[in-house]
Simulated assay, not measured.
Amino acid sequence: MESANKNNGDVNVVDHMNQHWESMRQFLHSQTTGGWQKCWEEDRTPWDLGHVTPVIQHLVQTDALPKGRILIPGCGRGYDVIAMASSQRNVVGLDLSEAAITKAKKLAASSANANSTTFIVDDFFTWQPNEPFELIFYYTFFCAIDPKTRPAWASRMAELLKPDGELLILMFPISDHVCGPPYKVSVSDYEEVLAPFGFKAISITENEHAIEFRKGYEKLGRWKRTSN
């Protein structure tokens, strides 16, 4: 596993996460059901950047994303859904939280590409779309689910992507912390669960566009589904 390093000013990203996420963790662990929904209802959402993910903005501006149908599970307020949507890209934002999707729909209503966005309240692990996708983008979703469910996550990727479809992942937090969510991740964590379903990494790079305190703890991975 990749070791955690220090960011600018010797501020450790794990300490930063713990400071900003601990109250949310306590809140989640205190709920018997509907914890994520209540986080959105009460604005306990430290994972929400409040704007488009910078690397997504960069990929859109440089025309480095495939055309067609795109899925963003755990889309939250939908910033990235709206940013990716165009006349050539229909983007579906999926989230378990009705409160999050309500916020996303309100935000998208004023977008020039609103007709190319769809927001759905459903469970990623059971939702059945009408057709598969050319691209799926993940950010703070894999790190939010129980690590024991990661093989099931990979299985869903194979079901939801078209043959030769692409999985675009911002891997965060790459660290050695023990608490969660967010649970620690590593490149090998992804490869271990994706490889059995025919996924092959085509590039894994440092995310040069990461927000300041996440720099050095985040990689951008692109996988192709090479077999059924």
Rank of each mutant, 00 (worst) to 15 (best):
M1P: 14
S3L: 14
N5V: 08
K6A: 10
N7K: 12
N8R: 04
D10L: 13
V11S: 07
D15T: 14
M17S: 10
M24T: 14
R25C: 05
S30E: 12
Q37Y: 09
K38P: 01
W40P: 10
E42L: 15
D43V: 02
R44E: 07
P46Q: 11
W47E: 06
L49E: 11
H51E: 13
H51W: 06
V52F: 02
T53P: 03
V55T: 03
I56R: 06
L59C: 14
V60Y: 12
V60M: 12
V60L: 11
Q61S: 15
T62H: 06
A64T: 02
A64L: 00
K67F: 08
K67E: 14
R69D: 15
G74R: 00
G76F: 02
R77Y: 07
Y79Q: 09
V81T: 01
S86V: 08
S86E: 11
Q88G: 05
R89H: 10
V92C: 09
V92Y: 13
E98F: 00
A100D: 13
I101D: 11
T102Q: 14
K103I: 09
A104R: 02
K105Q: 09
K106I: 09
A108L: 05
N113E: 14
N113Y: 08
A114T: 12
N115G: 03
N115W: 04
S116F: 10
F119D: 07
I120T: 15
D122S: 15
W127P: 06
P129H: 04
P132R: 04
F133V: 00
F133Y: 15
F137C: 02
T140V: 01
A144D: 06
A144M: 09
A144N: 11
I145V: 07
P147W: 01
T149Q: 13
T149M: 15
E159C: 02
L160D: 07
K162P: 06
D164Y: 13
D164S: 09
G165P: 11
E166C: 02
L170N: 08
P173V: 04
V178P: 09
G180L: 08
P181W: 00
P181A: 12
Y183C: 10
V185H: 05
V187F: 04
S188N: 08
S188L: 05
D189M: 01
Y190S: 05
V193T: 04
A195Y: 06
P196K: 07
F197Y: 15
K200Q: 10
I202W: 00
T205A: 15
E206I: 09
N207K: 00
A210F: 01
I211M: 06
F213Q: 03
R214K: 08
K219P: 03
K219F: 07
R225G: 10
S227C: 10
N228Q: 14
